[in-house]
């Protein structure tokens, strides 16, 4: 079946480097296959720009199959675009109309500064993880097999669902407050639910929340936008769990 093509206008944030002042620039792109992914459309635009001897647009991408968490982009006012439960690399041009104007902006948050064009620095998430998003394991050679510990199916499932967070930052980007609580709560929950994670649970939640606050993310006001825009459909239930864990930990420590 022959694929349909559309002609589109793109309004894209261009910024030379972290210190430069950026602005929205307009580009016309013709003959975009509706079967192409959003990133393939940007590849096509970059080829066009290179042929015209212009600077191509910088944007993050890696696996292009929705699992690495590298791609971002705020498309037409929504994180990862208008589709649900997909990353930008899984978004297809069939979601857009012929002649449409598409706005593409980087994630906007003080804690995610722009490096260039559409690329932002998400290392704040790494520092939150380093503050406690792990289980310390004694590697003396007598480490117990994790599968030897019986875990209730319901807890295993909830921990797995929380662990599907790919750390893309859509929750922060879409939140009107630039809050990182959905991300942090997913990382806290996936371990708080499992026996291996319970040992360090008190310090984990306190340290991760402390780091989150230090990074300059905003405060959650429960609008629920993060849950809707999350490509992995991480539930708000995790934020409630993090709040409970935090209260417990504060009383204990």
């Amino acid at each position: 079946m022959a694929s349909k093509t559309i002609n589109i206008t793109l309004k894209i944030w261009r910024q030379k480097n972290a210190n430069a002042k950026g602005s929205m620039e307009t580009y016309k792109l013709d003959n975009v296959s509706t079967d192409s992914s959003f990133l393939e459309m940007l590849d096509q635009l970059n080829e066009q720009l290179i042929n015209e001897r212009q600077e191509p647009i910088a944007f993050d991408h890696d696996c292009r199959e929705g699992i690495c968490g590298m791609c971002s982009l705020y498309i037409n006012g929504e994180a990862h675009g208008p589709d649900r439960a997909v990353t930008t690399c899984q978004l297809h041009m069939r979601k857009f109309k012929d002649g449409e104007t598409i706005y593409i902006e980087p994630w906007r948050a003080k804690a995610f500064p722009v490096i260039k064009d559409l690329v932002v620095d998400r290392s704040a998430f790494d520092r939150i993880q380093q503050a406690g998003g792990f289980v310390s394991v004694n590697t003396s050679g007598r480490t117990m097999d994790a599968n030897a510990i019986p875990i209730a199916k319901v807890d295993a499932d909830k921990a797995f669902e929380a662990a599907t967070c790919i750390g893309c930052g859509a929750c922060v980007a879409t939140c009107k407050n630039s809050s990182a609580m959905l991300f942090v709560s997913a990382k806290v929950s996936q371990m708080a639910l499992l026996p291996q994670g319970k040992v360090e649970a008190t310090q984990r939640v306190l340290n991760m929340v402390k780091q989150m606050d230090e990074e300059g993310f905003g405060n959650c006001t429960n609008t629920g936008a993060c849950e809707v825009e999350c490509p992995k459909e991480i539930s708000l239930e995790n934020i409630a769990r993090m709040n409970r864990e935090y209260m417990k930990a504060s009383l204990k420590s």
């Binding site: 929205m24 705020y74 906007r108 948050a109 407050n177 809050s179 300059g216 405060n219 006001t221």
Partner: peptide
Amino acid sequence: NRNARTVAYVK
């Protein structure tokens, strides 16, 4: 919360 986003989205 307003300080957590210094540059607003165009859209």
